[in-house]
């Protein structure tokens, strides 16, 4: 098991009683890859996400992260941003970012005090400035727009320095213009922090624009009398070149007709 891949998934199956969701998933993700996962709704991409997160357990197969089997619960090595409900509504913007640092240091009181707290607040303020939220530091998330809430969710996660960033349709609920801003931000943070990103999206062009590699989930076997009999698997695994005007468009067209 000395494969250099950061995430290695081998022969992964997931089924619920009466429903097969995923079958024969094999995947290796290297450090610093930006993998986007697309597929029709109900093709198991969210289930795959939950398996990577540790929120659900595979029926068969194992997921290795940095060579070690994944613990059966979410952990600090995998940061996450969901489509909604990622931030804590009872904490201000600053507190939302600070809470991770406090939780890491103070296992019983769950709060930090004095000099350490001032240092941590400074660190959080730098992060908020980076994502453009410093002016709203004392607002509650409820007062923020959807895009700002996702910026907050990102900074809340990234302040902990996770190796892997998992994004579950993080821009699905945003307006197109704001979505474009967020794409820029995520790309920048990805290269600044040397992250390994895995992002679920239902938007194929978003997948191409953002990632360095695109996975398509789909069912290869379909029983018309029992649609749930077979699960989905990875049907396309395409490297995406950064050179946007070159060669991408035909691939998208080919894929779209394929999907």
């Amino acid at each position: 098991m000395t494969s250099g891949a950061l995430i290695r998934v081998s022969q992964l199956w997931k089924s619920y009683p009466g429903t097969a969701v995923l079958e024969r998933i094999n995947l290796e993700v290297e450090r610093n890859e930006f993998v986007t996962v697309v597929g029709a709704s109900g093709c198991g991409k969210t289930t795959f996400f939950k398996l990577l997160l540790g929120e659900e357990q595979p029926t068969r197969g194992t997921i290795f992260v940095a060579g070690k089997p994944l613990a059966p619960e979410p952990g600090k090595d995998r940061g996450v941003v969901f489509q909604r409900y990622s931030v804590f509504p009872h904490l201000t913007v600053l507190e939302n970012v600070l809470v991770g640092l406090e939780l890491r240091r103070s296992k019983f009181l769950c709060r930090s005090f004095g000099r350490r707290r001032r240092d941590e607040i400074e660190q959080c303020e730098r992060m908020l400035e980076r994502v453009g939220l410093l002016s709203s530091a004392n607002a509650y998330p409820d007062a923020l727009s959807g895009g700002m809430q996702q910026r907050l969710a990102l900074s809340q996660t990234l302040i902990m320095g996770p190796e892997i960033l998992l994004l579950d349709e993080p821009f699905g609920a945003l307006d197109p213009g704001i979505r474009a801003d967020m794409h820029g931000l995520v790309r920048e943070l990805y290269s600044e922090l040397n992250l390994t990103v895995l992002m679920i999206t239902h938007d194929l062009s978003e997948g191409f624009r953002l990632g360095t590699r695109l996975l398509v989930f789909d069912k290869v076997r379909v029983d018309p009398h029992d649609p749930d009999a077979y699960g989905a698997t990875i049907t396309y695994d395409v490297p995406v070149s950064r050179n946007r005007n070159n060669g991408n468009e035909p691939t998208i067209a080919a894929l779209e007709s394929g999907v």
Partner: peptide
């Protein structure tokens, strides 16, 4: 999501 998020914050 919030409970999962908290777990990813250790």
């Amino acid at each position: 999501e919030q409970i999962v998020k908290a777990q990813t914050l250790d």
